Amino acid sequence: SGNANTETLPSGWEQRKDPHGRTYYVDHNTRTTTWERPQPLPPGWERR
Rank of each mutant, 00 (worst) to 15 (best):
H28D: 06
T30H: 10
R31Q: 14
Q39V: 11
V26F: 04
Y24F: 13
R48M: 09
L41W: 12
H28M: 08
R37E: 07
S11W: 11
K17R: 10
P43Y: 04
P40V: 11
W13D: 05
R16N: 00
S11R: 11
R16E: 06
T32E: 05
E14A: 06
T23M: 06
L41G: 12
P42K: 13
Q15S: 12
P40I: 11
Q15F: 02
G21D: 08
Q39P: 09
T6W: 07
P42V: 08
R31K: 15
W13I: 03
P40L: 08
R37F: 07
T33K: 07
R16I: 02
D27A: 02
T34E: 02
W35I: 03
G12M: 01
P38A: 02
E14R: 00
D18M: 00
N29G: 08
H20V: 10
W13N: 05
T30N: 08
P40Q: 08
K17E: 13
N5F: 06
T8H: 14
E36A: 10
S1F: 09
H20G: 12
T34A: 06
R48S: 15
P10G: 09
P38T: 01
S11K: 11
N29F: 04
R16T: 07
R48T: 12
T30R: 07
T33R: 04
D27F: 00
S11F: 08
P40T: 09
R48W: 07
P19R: 11
T8N: 10
D27E: 03
H28L: 09
W35S: 05
N5H: 06
R16F: 10
W13Q: 01
G12P: 02
G2N: 15
P40N: 15
N5S: 10
Y24E: 03
R22N: 13
P40C: 09
T23P: 07
T6R: 14
P42C: 08
E46K: 07
P10R: 05
R31F: 02
P19W: 04
Q39S: 13
T30M: 04
T33Q: 05
P43W: 08
T8R: 13
G44D: 13
P40H: 08
N5G: 05
W45L: 14
E36M: 12
T32I: 10
E14M: 03
R47Q: 15
R37Y: 04
W35L: 03
P38L: 00
R16M: 09
A4V: 07
A4L: 14
H20L: 13
P40F: 08
